[in-house]
Structures are given as structure tokens and as C-alpha cells.
Nucleic acid binder design. Sequence first.
DNA 1: GAGAATTTGTACGTATGTATG
DNA 2: ACATACATACGTACAAATTCT
Lengths: 87, 87
Amino acid sequence: MLSVTVDQLDPTPIYEQLAGIIREKIKAGDLAERQLVPSESSLQQKHGIARGSVRRAMELLREEGWVVTIQGRGTFVAPRENWPGKP
Amino acid sequence: MLSVTVDQLDPTPIYEQLAGIIREKIKAGDLAERQLVPSESSLQQKHGIARGSVRRAMELLREEGWVVTIQGRGTFVAPRENWPGKP
DNA sequence: GAGAATTTGTACGTATGTATG
DNA sequence: ACATACATACGTACAAATTCT
């Protein structure tokens, strides 16, 4: 089963959990290419975590090439050729 | 004495200080029912604080029922029956 | 009605302080 | 000492709604 929210009791860092959740949504096509990813504040509220943790998760996904962030607009699913494991 | 501006050295959060100042103005009748509250940018300049702090103060006052905000128009003092402690 | 200006709404970027394990 | 997490507060940019010229 795919987790839909973070688990505060899980020793895995919150931001890694959240990154994992969003990464899986992208892989599954639930979040499509170039689609707007939910905002930091909405993710913050939905999961009951701090914005800094959301930002760390997004930072991870950016580094991995899953998403692209544009100031003042939002975070978007990156074009498929930027995704990892796509040689 | 009633403070007229926020105090950066006061450990009370800036947005709480500003909310308190405006709340007292409403209670004192300095800002009357349905009157337009100064805009976010003017409050920002007057107190030398960030707009985000002004918005948080307004959010507090909205939640308490002191003011009503309309996009594109401004923030107004709420009708008296919305004020707290008016059963 | 068109266009500029004003005002609030949303979103990201960054820094600092505090608390906890 | 260090990593994690939350709170506050600064800044920037752009969107949306309204008002004014």
C-alpha cells in the first residue's frame, strides 16, 4: 500500500517521507509532466508539518530532477527527460 | 499608554503586536464599524515591517471576527455583532 | 471600454531563533 | 556537538479583483 501522508513515528526523516510520497505520485502518473505540484503551504497543512520540512522535500526532488521550482509561481513536475534513470 | 507602533525589541511576535494595536483601535472606536482599515502596504511602511507580518496580523483579526477582507478592495472593520464577546 | 494603479492572494527564497533527541 | 523540526520575519515575484483615469 502506498502511504498518503507522513508518519511522525517513522524514524525516517519527515522530508524524506514526503519526498517519497510525491516521487511515487509522479512515477505513477498521478502527478503528470509539467503539472503544478501542490503548494508548500497546502502540503504543510495536509501533512501537519513545517514549511521547512516541505522545502527540504522539494529540494531533494529538485536535486533528483523530478521537479522544477520557479519563484513566484510554484513547483512543477519536470519534463520526463530530466527524471532519473532515463538514459 | 497605548503603543502606536510595533517594537522590534519586544519578544512578542511582530504580527501579534500589530494585531493588538489594531484591535485596540477598533475597541476604542478609533476605527469605526465598517471603516476601511489601512492597506497592507501602508501598514508595512508605517511600522517598518514585512508585508507577511501585516498579513499574519490581519489573519488573526479575521479569525477573531474583528475585520473582514475583500480582495481588490481592502480590509474593513467587521459589523459589531461579529466582534468577540458579543453574545 | 481600455489601461493604469491599488489592494489583496499566493508562492517561493532566505535567515535567524528555539526546542528536541 | 549535531541533525531534525518548527516559528518568526525578512524579501521577491506574479496573479486576481477592484477602482480610478
